[in-house]
Amino acid sequence: MSSGQNSGGLMSSAGLVRYFDAEDRNAIKLDPRTVVAVGILFGILIIILQATV
C-alpha cells in the first residue's frame, strides 16, 4: 500500500466508538440473560399457540 492511500479503517470507526461508548442516563438497561429468557418464552408461546390451532 502506498503512503498516499488511506484505508480509513481506524478513522472511519472512531465515530462509532464514540457513539456506542456514550452512556445515556435515560436508556433502558437490561441484563442479557433477561433478553434471552424473554426470547425463549416468546418462542415457547408461539409453539404452544401453533399447536392449539
Rank of each mutant, 00 (worst) to 15 (best):
M1I: 13
M1A: 13
S3F: 08
G4S: 15
G4K: 13
N6H: 05
N6W: 08
N6P: 03
S7M: 13
S7D: 12
G8H: 10
G9S: 13
G9E: 03
L10P: 00
M11N: 10
M11E: 15
S12F: 07
S12R: 15
S13C: 14
L16F: 14
L16S: 12
V17C: 02
V17T: 13
R18K: 06
R18F: 05
Y19A: 06
F20P: 02
D21P: 00
D21L: 13
D21A: 13
A22D: 02
R25Q: 10
R25N: 04
R25L: 02
R25A: 08
A27S: 06
A27P: 04
A27Y: 05
A27C: 08
I28D: 05
I28N: 07
K29T: 09
K29G: 01
L30Q: 04
D31H: 04
R33E: 09
T34R: 11
T34E: 05
V35G: 03
V35D: 02
V36R: 09
I40G: 00
L41S: 12
F42T: 14
F42E: 12
G43V: 03
G43K: 04
G43M: 09
L45Q: 06
L45N: 07
I47Y: 12
I47N: 04
I48H: 02
Q50Y: 04
T52D: 08
V53C: 02
